[in-house]
Computed example of a mutant assay.
Amino acid sequence: MPSLRGAKVFRSGVTASRWNFENDSVIVNNFSEREPSLHFKFELASKGGGTTEVSLRMSPSCFDAILNQMYKVAPEKTAALMARQMKEHFWPETT
Rank of each mutant, 00 (worst) to 15 (best):
F63W: 05
D24K: 01
F63L: 08
T78L: 03
D24P: 07
G13T: 04
H89Y: 08
M58D: 09
W19F: 09
P36H: 03
T52A: 06
G6N: 02
P75T: 03
H39F: 06
Y71A: 03
S59Q: 14
T95G: 10
F21Q: 04
P36T: 01
P36L: 08
N20H: 10
N20L: 13
A74D: 11
D24Y: 05
V9E: 09
G50Y: 00
Q69K: 10
H39T: 01
Y71C: 00
S25V: 13
E88Q: 14
K47H: 08
P92L: 15
V14W: 13
N23C: 08
E35G: 02
F10Q: 07
V26L: 07
E33L: 13
S3P: 14
R84S: 14
P92F: 15
E35W: 08
P36C: 00
R84T: 03
S59C: 05
S32Y: 15
N20C: 12
L38K: 01
V9T: 05
S25I: 12
S61I: 09
S37R: 07
A80Y: 02
C62L: 07
L38T: 00
S37M: 11
D64I: 12
R84A: 12
G50S: 03
P60F: 09
K41Q: 13
V26F: 10
N29A: 15
E22A: 15
V9S: 00
M86T: 12
R34G: 11
P60I: 04
R11Q: 07
N20A: 10
L4T: 00
A16Y: 06
A7L: 05
F21A: 11
N20D: 15
Y71F: 07
N30L: 15
S25C: 05
T94Y: 15
V14T: 09
T95C: 11
Q69M: 09
L38C: 06
A74C: 08
R34S: 07
E76A: 06
G48F: 05
M86P: 04
S55N: 14
A16G: 05
L67F: 01
R11W: 01
K47Q: 08
G50D: 00
L4Y: 01
C62W: 10
L67C: 13
G49S: 03
T94E: 14
W91N: 15
N23A: 05
A65Q: 06
A65F: 00
E33T: 09
Y71P: 05
I27D: 15
R57T: 03
